[in-house]
Design a protein around this nucleic acid. Sequence first.
RNA 1: GACCGAUUGGCGCAGUUGGCUAGCGCGUCUGCAUGACACGCAGAAGGUCACAGGUUCGAGUCCUGUAUCGGUCACCA
Length: 1183
Amino acid sequence: MTDLPKAYTPADHEPRVRERWDDSRAFHADPGRVLSGEARPYTVLIPPPNVTAALHLGHALNNTLQDVLVRAHRMKGYETLWMPGTDHAGIATQTVVDKRLREAGEPGIAEYKRREAEGEPAREEFVAKVQAWKDEYKARITDQLKAMGCSCDWSRQRFTMDEICARAVREAFFRLFKDGLIYRGKRLVNWDPVTQTALADDEVESRDVDGHFYFLRYPLVHEAAPGDHNPVTWEELAARGYPGAEEHPGDDEAWITIATTRPETYLGDTAVAVNPKDPRATAVRGMKVQLPLVGRVIPIVEDDYVVMPVKYGGDENDPTALMATGFLKVTPAHYQNDWEIGNRHDLERINIMAPDASISDQHGWEDVGYAHIFVGLSRKDARKKVVEEFQARTLNDAHPLLEDIKPHRHAVGHSYRSHVPVEPYLSDQWYCKVTDDRLRGYAQRALKTEQRTSQTHAADTRIEGDSDVTFYPPRYAKTYETWHDDLRDWCISRQLWWGHRIPVWSLRQLERESHFDPPHGAELKSTMRPLVDRLLELERGGRISAIRHFDSIGVPLVSVRPEEMVNFDWQELSVCVLNEWDSEAIEFVESMGFTQDPDVLDTWFSSALWALSTLGWPNADLPRFHPKQIDQGDDSTVNAVYAKRVGTWKDFIGVDGEKSGELIDTLLVLRDLHKKTGGEPVLAYQLFSEADLEANGQAAMPLLAPDDIQQATDLVCAVAVKTTEPVKVVKRSVETVHDIPAFLLSHGFQDTAGLLAAFNPTSVLCTAREIITLWVSRMVMFNRYFLEHDGKPGQHPFHDVFIHAMIQDGEGRKMSKSLGNGVDPLDIIDSHGTDSMRFTLVQMTTNTQDVRMPVERDETTGKNTSPKFDLGRNFCNKLWNAARFALSMLEGTTAGTPVPRGDLTLPDKWLLTRIARTEALLTDALTKYTFKEFADACYDLLWRDFCDWYLEAIKPTVKASAAQQATLRAGLDAILRLLHPMIPFVTETIAEKLGEVASPGVEGLTLTPARRGCLASAGWPECDASLLDEVAEARLERIRSLAAEINTTRAKHQVKPKRKITVHLSASLVEDLGTDADYVRTLAGVETITADAPAGDAVAFVFEGAECKASDLADAVDAEQEKAALGTELAKLEKQLKTLDGRLSNPGYVEKAPEKMVNETKQQRAETAERIDAIRARLGELG
RNA sequence: GACCGAUUGGCGCAGUUGGCUAGCGCGUCUGCAUGACACGCAGAAGGUCACAGGUUCGAGUCCUGUAUCGGUCACCA
């Protein structure tokens, strides 16, 4: 076996190993084995990476940890499903594609939007561009995951916008809509003026910004006819008791001062508010203010919300009171708080901005007046200009309208995508009522009771799914819990093109802006009756849901009495159509003048369904087929089985030219393709009767007789797909390439039968903390809501949530493109190999919130790397060489019956003990998600135990010892299995070689052969309790510490490693050691161990408190050097003795500490004293 | 502002119910081509566990406070 190269070169093995895994289908999960009780399920859903970019090191960490869990459980005999997939990442992807297009000099989204507005079909064109991007990145991400060794069930890969996910989205939306948990509302939303879409609350990140407080003066006026100017004078104010008014000339126009950070919004002010307790409030009661330039006269309202300045009774500890003037400008259409004040006082809402946040008089603002000079300016320019204008204008020819500017640092919400300040913007959006008990309450109750801190929504342990979701580490449960406490309804509509389009039709174009002029609904009324009847009929058939929304209140059309129909507001009616392919319903609704909402859903809506859609919901009850049912001949080549309910034969074959017609055509061509080309068959299909399937399950037979097929009304079509490659078909000299799975999916076939029943709830969700709220919570809500039964919450989507650390660079900064401190996993795979990367990542994973990785730039390649990966490389290389050595020692071994324990030598027994202990440690680490412990235990077993001690100890004897050879073979095999989850490639490679070595094995260590021919499918080592041998551990420990003492002595005296020395021990010790002395000789380079006194020069060392000697160190021994060394050690020991004496003389310790503890201390004290004596004796000898 | 973390040799980190004579890897120093491995072997040096109090026979570990650094949420008068 010396044909193996000296160093492990990953690139020579990884591609071959990957192919081996693919070919063996070792990662394919079979729900049948779970449903039949053959195996317990272990399920992990990949957090779907965004198709925006290639994977980074954070993904490498995330997926490595999942793979460790998944591979270990697969080996432990679980039927293991790791579901892969990618996320369409709506806003992120659309933004990235737009940017790339513009960088390439092509038109961006703005141009497409303009064309679309002009009636051109530009939307589809743009979406196609994004699709192309998605295809490219989806492929790249998949390749990267495969390169990382991820053992996903690749035949089941999902994408959040594929047909199966789309079906889940439609079903989910429809049900929430029908149940009143989705509504349309006009409110202030977080508006991103760059991408021009609404954002959810948690897509807004606040950042501190250096801004200013601007103090603006608004003139006070009396109510007057429009255009008249009737100022209030200071004299009047003084007469009404306005404090300080008398300081101004009595005839002068009076004003009030407001403070704001956003002066440009004054254009939309519709009131000024004052606290009723403010001493000035009564004085100005009934007066108005007039907005400069705009000329709008607005009321002064009294509201408790307004903070009074300290001067007028405000709290001096309140920072706001220190800055406030006591008068607050109220701009209901541009501030959340003002919106609420506006609601309380029934104020007008004037939107002064266009969707790009420039000042506009086209979106609801009419009384522009002299303020037209601001129209068209950006927010920033408008602010500047407002300040300039206020500075330039004066009251009474003396006082500038701008009273003051003070610097002010404050937090401003920014879009998490475009990073510009978010504009609170008035618009019509769709909301999901997550505050409803069926969503929020269900999510709170799912959390493990032990991890809860409050009792709201307390779990009911009798309900399945309550109190079961557990966070690791537990502190993250708090993040989850408190987020729900402060939850507001979730804005789910986005003004984007890339995403799941909202399946709602209505009469009005969705209104973005503040003003809405209803079209004339009255004309519809007389002709409405039959249409309404048809709508109600469709609704009763469960195909649509029609609801009239008034903010969060929804009134279903079915509940509207006929006499109320006359005044029914059709403009507010929304019709949700369940099925995308229900063209009849859609055509009918559109014939009434309804149009589909142009918006798409928040990307997290489909992410929230990930645990449902990937497992086949809502069609989770599709029958399962055995490949043999479809293809009686050869089922071994079947990759996946797809099925679809097709109804009748007529429905199935359809009409030529329609989608279903294309289906049967293509199926026939593909089925018979191999007959023409002479290749392997690519698919087989059969039709079944669902009644037969229900009655007989996998014993049901396909329908073959044409009569049977034509009479059946419950046909199910099942397709067995035999290839994963795209298939080329030449038909009438036209070449078409079919991606069979994609083709089947687009025709409504699914390969998900049995998944939900077998694999939900999943075992663990492994993710980073940033998406606990965005994703984790929403998945819990949706799973429990949609799997509701008997009015009780349904099962949750996962038992455990493991939140792993985030990787930062050496300075604690986030890795990012802009900082240039990112490390590309593919670069590391290139330079160090996949396993090295994986080992290092696992080893780094502690339960802290961040882990640091020093980043270095490799000047030759210009790529970033980290010296930390050397650790992993060294480890893999160590394994490689240990295996190389072991294999060379195993040449010529043959199989036989397992070696009984009695035949094993001491190192054998000890190694097996170490394997058993490590196995237990690893299993424990997996259940606790303590990955560093996992890696460290592997490291110690391989390096410290197997290489440093076992291999060294057996070197002289193994070739002649059948027991040692058997243990070596079995031990290495067990180690490969234990390390495989973390470093799969190198272990698989070595296992290939080790598989060629026949050996009898050892009793008590069970190594189940591979189910699918590769180590990845082999059994986890099973260690019988008999392997734990404490006597062997103690004996080896003694050998080890004696050898260590001797080695230290040798090093102190600079004895050449090759020189064999003589060790002199007490007669009793020599006798006690017996044959174990041989191991000491091997491990410490000793020629002879004897009870005789040294003849010539010798040095002393202490072992077990006794003075021992070593001779033949060199031709002469340096006594002074030895004296110095002994002196240092003596000082150390004396200090230690003092500590121990102090402890033992402490009455509290002796009385209160556990007896075992005290005895141990006494023992320690005795040993220390003995050592001291021995050293003193030797020092005496030396003089 | 509220909450959640972190602070342990030069660097990166362990240290799970207090029992520690504080571990590991990298780096440093010494010696070494020894029957797999120099991506290695045998040794060594290097830490008053951020600081101040407290609880305890005993504190890196528990409590209180302070400082510094991260993170999350709130706050745009």
